[in-house]
């Protein structure tokens, strides 16, 4: 996720789960914006798509997987080059996701924030 000088990289963001996760999402968005990324609500226009997942109980995990697959479609149908999975599902199931979901380009666990500040 390098900064482009001319055209800012557009980031689409989906936050799932509880208010605690929402605060994490808001901090990630703040860091992204301050680092020069443009935040877009139109997923089809995003260069990077990030989903901040919940991994608490079964229905939440299913919802997270559904959103990952949904967003992965924009790698074909949209402009998305990088699909990032962050948050609790990534923290809890990184090796399973790595193996079973080739759509995902990057995982950020619960210490993700330091990486966002690069």
């Amino acid at each position: 996720m390098r900064k482009e000088a001319a055209m800012p990289t557009k980031v689409g963001f989906v936050s799932l789960g509880c208010p605690k996760n929402l605060v994490d999402s808001e901090v990630m968005l703040g860091i992204l914006k301050d680092s020069g990324f443009e935040i877009t609500s139109k997923e089809e226009n995003a260069d990077v798509l990030i989903v901040n997942t919940c991994g608490f109980i079964e229905p939440a995990k299913e919802e997270s997987i559904r959103h990952i697959l949904e967003l992965a479609k924009y790698k074909e149908a949209g402009k998305c080059k990088v699909l990032v999975v962050a948050g609790c599902l990534a923290q809890r199931y990184s090796s399973e996701l790595l193996e079973e979901m080739p759509e995902i380009d990057a995982w950020l666990g619960r210490n993700m924030f330091r990486r966002f500040q690069i």
Partner: peptide, 30 residues
């Protein structure tokens, strides 16, 4: 493919930027 998964230690602070997504009159504070 990039993976950054480690023991969770992070907690945010008042210096980090934050983009509120809740209505303008309400905010969660962890």
């Amino acid at each position: 493919r990039i993976s950054h998964i480690s023991e969770p230690q992070f907690i945010y602070n008042e210096h980090l930027p934050r983009l509120l997504s809740t209505p303008h009159y309400t905010a969660y504070v962890k």
